[in-house]
């Protein structure tokens, strides 16, 4: 159990660090697109690590204490929650970026904007 606890603490540390970086990036960056970078990538990555820590803990209890139904169910359902989060976050970021650009939000300090040139044609 000691090894599993150590692994879980390391994963939780990494996950909390990236979640904090993501929400601080929401305040540090100047415009919507760069905020989307910070928010989507960092919180997805942090959530992967935190949910993996939960999976490791419940799988460890499941393996050590035999057929303990609540922990086995929690392990499988946490994997499903992780898959749902991964699939939906990237697609949602794509939808938000496209909606923002069509509603006329300009990228701040942008060097080149090919999409704007296409819409002007």
């Amino acid at each position: 159990m000691g090894v599993l606890n150590t692994i879980s603490y390391v994963f939780i540390g990494i996950g909390l660090f990236f979640n904090l970086v993501g929400v601080i990036g929401l305040h540090r960056f100047p415009d919507m697109y760069t905020r989307l970078h910070a928010a989507t990538k960092c919180t997805t990555f942090g959530s992967i690590f935190i949910i993996t820590a939960v999976i490791v803990q419940s799988a460890g209890i499941w393996a050590l204490e035999g057929a303990y139904p609540s922990q086995s169910v929690m392990c499988i359902h946490a994997v499903l929650a992780l898959v749902a989060l991964l699939v939906t976050n990237a697609t949602g970021a794509h939808a938000m970026a496209r909606a923002a650009h069509r509603s006329g939000e300009k990228p701040a300090k942008a060097v080149v904007d090919d999409l704007q040139e296409k819409e002007n044609d």
Binding site: M32, R35, A39, G46, I51, V54, S58, M74, L85
Partner: peptide, 30 residues
């Protein structure tokens, strides 16, 4: 502006999902 608020709201949703998984492990409720 609306797009920035939407981004922040989506971030909150992700964090709430993670917190719910942690709470499930903490209280042992599947």
């Amino acid at each position: 502006g609306a797009p920035t608020r939407l981004v922040a709201f989506d971030t909150i949703n992700t964090l709430v999902v993670t917190s719910l998984v942690i709470l499930a492990m903490m209280f042992d409720h599947v």
